[in-house]
Amino acid sequence: MAKEKKLRVRKHTVVLNRSAGGDFGIFFFLAIMGIFMFIPMYYTVIQALKPLDELWAFPPKFYVTAPTLKNFKDLFRLMNTSWVPFSRYLFNTVVITVGGTFGNLFLSSLASYVLSKMYFPGKKWMFKLVETSLMFNAVAASIANFIIMSALGWVDTLWAIIIPAWGSTLGLYLMKNFMDSSVSDAVLESARLDGASELYTFWHIAMPMVKPAWLTLIVYSFQGLWNTGSTIYIYSEQLKTFSYAIGQILAGGIVRAGAGAASAVVMMIVPIIVFVISQSNIIETMATSGMKD
């Protein structure tokens, strides 16, 4: 009897809250926005697949009749004939991305464990400071950072990009919040009572419980570092990144229109694949991203 009543209420809710007009409006809005978001991506891929005569057809077509991979071949030819070998740019980006991400992962998880699960004077304001730093864009600090880099002697070395990445704030923030809600104090306490060191508790008990958070941190760090373009800290051509070199081809204008689009496809494919693989973990982490007052 009671169950029946509950069911009726639920049905009632659906009828009341979801008008057909509203559903249609939402669908319409999502469709328009989805098309707006998707078309530039689609157009990039189409441009990359167009043979030369279609690239310069008038009026420009929104589809490709004779798709070709020639643009990608052109791109690799351009890469091979560039002054600095392209493998060098790619190597720099891989070094930055891997070095920056792993350092960031290790130091941030260690720090978020401390800020979330240990007690010591100064803990509150230390995290507050990290939270506040999310409020300003790092670009504003670039001039002062340049002064600091030159004092450290890191100008024009890859350290200037890798080391600051180790102290980036968003990953720590997300991880600390995730630890707050998904690692129970009781489990850690019992490990401590058994005589486990803090480092052991961190690595063997807390870390396995926050897998979604460290995957998210890896993805964020990866995306940021993979897209590192030209910065004021690095001026030697040999130390510039893949994204910078791709940008040079992209900026090549008319002569390289096809190769430019191909390079954009190469550039976007990696972060998109990474996101597709990790999406559910990222969403799980974001569920605890809220900012407490």
């Binding site: 926005m33 978001m37 310069w56 009026p59 430019g260 954009a264 976007m268 998109i272 969403i283």
Partner: peptide
Amino acid sequence: TLVFYAPNISGSVYMIWQVAFSSDSYGW
């Protein structure tokens, strides 16, 4: 989610807007 989020992570893909709005008749 992927469709809406992809432009945010695709690096310099926004350059396609310059191609689409380029100042000659080959811009879309």
